[in-house]
C-alpha cells in the first residue's frame, strides 16, 4: 500500500495569490516561446516507410497487378472496406481482380490488408490526403489504387524487414 502524505501548505500557498502569480508568470513566458503547430497545407506531414497511409495496389508487370484476388485482405478488413471480384487471365498466374474496390470512407488505415496479403500486392502508401464531394467518389477502383513497384518499394523493404523479426 502506498501512503501519500498530504503536504502541509505554507502561508504563501494558503493565501493562494502568490501561487496564482507564479502560474501567471509561467503562462506569460510561454507566450514567447516558439510555436509547435504545423501549418498543415503549406508544411505537409513528413512521411517515411513507417507511415501507414491509404492502401494501394502494386503493379507487378506493365498493366498487371500483383494481386491475384485471393480475397484475404477482404476477409481481414475489419471495416468491410474492400470488395473484390476475380476473373481468369491467360497469364501464368491464372487469376486477377476484375474489380478491386476500397471504400476509402470505410477504410480505417489499420494495415490488416497489407499483413494478410500473401502476394505482396497491397501496401500502405504514404498518401494521406483524402477529399471528395460525393460518397461514390471515395470508392477507389483499380485505376485509382494502382501504383508502380518503385513507388511502394520503401514500404515493401520495411515490411520485409519487420517480417524477418518473427
Amino acid at each position: 500500500m502506498v501512503i501519500v502524505k498530504r503536504k502541509t501548505l505554507t502561508l504563501a500557498e494558503r493565501l493562494y495569490l502568490p501561487e496564482i502569480l507564479r502560474g501567471l508568470s509561467i503562462t506569460f513566458r510561454k507566450m514567447f516561446q516558439p510555436k509547435v503547430t504545423r501549418q498543415y497545407p503549406e508544411e505537409p506531414l513528413p512521411t517515411n516507410e513507417v507511415t501507414r497511409g491509404q492502401p494501394r495496389l502494386r503493379e507487378l508487370t506493365e498493366g498487371h497487378l500483383a494481386c491475384v484476388s485471393c480475397g484475404l485482405c477482404e476477409a481481414a478488413c475489419p471495416a468491410y472496406a474492400i470488395t473484390i471480384d476475380g476473373q481468369e487471365t491467360d497469364r501464368f498466374i491464372e487469376r486477377e481482380p476484375e474489380r478491386f474496390e476500397i471504400d476509402m470512407l470505410r477504410c480505417i488505415l489499420c494495415g490488416f490488408c497489407e499483413e494478410a496479403c500473401p502476394k505482396e500486392a497491397i501496401f500502405m502508401s504514404t498518401e494521406l490526403e483524402l477529399a471528395g464531394f460525393t460518397r461514390e467518389s471515395f470508392k477507389y477502383g483499380i485505376d485509382k489504387l494502382k501504383r508502380s513497384t518503385e513507388e511502394l518499394a520503401p514500404r515493401m523493404e520495411y515490411i520485409k524487414r519487420i517480417n524477418e523479426r518473427w
Binding site: T27, F28, K30, M31, F32, Q33, P34, K35, V36, T37, Q39
Partner: peptide
C-alpha cells in the same frame, strides 16, 4: 490568440 500563444500554438 493569447490562449493559442500560451499553449504554443498560432
Amino acid at each position: 490568440k493569447f490562449s493559442a500563444w500560451m499553449q504554443l500554438r498560432y
